[in-house]
Simulated assay, not measured.
Amino acid sequence: MERDALTELVNIGVSRAAASLRKMVGGEVLLSVPSVEVIGNRQAAALIQEREGGELVAVWQEFSGAFKGRALLIFPHANSLELVRAVVGAAVPAEEVTGLEDEALTETGNVILNSCLATMANMLQRPLAMSLPQVLRGRGEALLSVPGGAGDEGLVLFLYINFSVRDRSIRGYIAMVMDLPSLGALRLLVGDFIERVMRDEPDHDL
């Protein structure tokens, strides 16, 4: 029940992000229902590297409040360039696309991550503060390290999402890296959310 509730919270946020991205790229944007797993950060890194194998590009933002951690939007490098081309448009010469990559990725990541986290914060009735987005490149181990903590202690709220932008097939991942206390706090808030929803539902047996 907690996993289903969390998936629904993220799905609502991603749906709002798709509407914003649609305006950015001037065409249809589809994002699949996220698949949610809570696993060790090293296991998540291994999963990404197993699926992708090459260099990854990530937009990350720190968040803090009732729970804290790092949110990342992660792409294989080739997919990130496809997304940049969709964002900047066909009128931009190919040789200039690479120069605009970080700016376009930062803007895209900011839209998606803020939509997901702001929606979660609103529905969980707890405010979250977000840092400015930054772009990182590297392999999964570096991207999914726990902020300020030991690598063995981190759990990743790992969300796999398929992206479809116009006629391009662009896949990406959203991950939230948190320590054990923050993950525990999030679980309690999701439990409170479930109780509120159940309490507000009409009793069909009456």
Rank of each mutant, 00 (worst) to 15 (best):
V87S: 00
E195N: 10
D167C: 10
L159E: 04
P93E: 09
G172D: 05
L83E: 04
A86V: 01
A175W: 09
S20Y: 13
Y173C: 14
D152Q: 15
S20C: 14
Y160I: 12
K68V: 06
L83I: 07
A78K: 14
I74G: 09
A150Q: 13
V57T: 06
I194N: 00
F67H: 02
R196P: 03
G149R: 00
T119K: 07
A66F: 09
R126T: 11
S164A: 08
A104N: 12
I161N: 06
I174P: 00
L81P: 09
Q125Y: 12
A142F: 13
H204P: 04
Q61Y: 10
V59L: 01
D102F: 14
S80N: 15
F75Q: 13
M176W: 14
S64D: 12
W60Y: 10
A66P: 04
G172Q: 06
V29N: 06
L117R: 00
H77R: 15
G149P: 06
E201Q: 04
A142W: 12
G148E: 00
T106E: 03
I74Q: 09
G54H: 11
P127L: 13
D192K: 03
A94L: 12
G65N: 03
S169C: 07
L159T: 06
K23P: 02
Q49K: 10
T7S: 02
G151H: 04
M123W: 06
V197C: 07
R137Y: 14
L136S: 14
I174D: 02
V29K: 02
E153G: 13
M24D: 04
V33H: 09
M130Q: 14
V165E: 08
L117N: 01
M24N: 05
L128W: 06
E153S: 13
L56F: 07
G53I: 06
R51E: 10
F63W: 00
E201V: 04
K23G: 00
L73C: 14
L180H: 12
G191S: 11
R22M: 11
W60D: 11
M24S: 04
I161H: 08
E153M: 14
G54R: 11
R51M: 13
L124D: 03
L117S: 02
P181W: 04
L155N: 00
A44G: 15
I174V: 10
T108W: 11
N162H: 15
E107F: 13
L6D: 00
L206D: 05
Q61W: 09
A185T: 05
E37F: 09
V190A: 04
P147I: 06
S80F: 10
E201G: 04
G151A: 14
D205K: 05
L124R: 07
E37M: 11
V111S: 01
N162D: 15
V111C: 08
A5H: 03
D205E: 07
R16C: 03
L47F: 15
D152C: 15
V165M: 06
G140M: 04
G69C: 10
V25C: 12
E55W: 12
V190Y: 01
L9N: 03
A175E: 02
Q125F: 13
M178E: 03
G154S: 11
N41E: 01
A121G: 03
L128H: 05
E52C: 07
I48H: 04
E195W: 13
M176L: 15
L157N: 02
I74R: 08
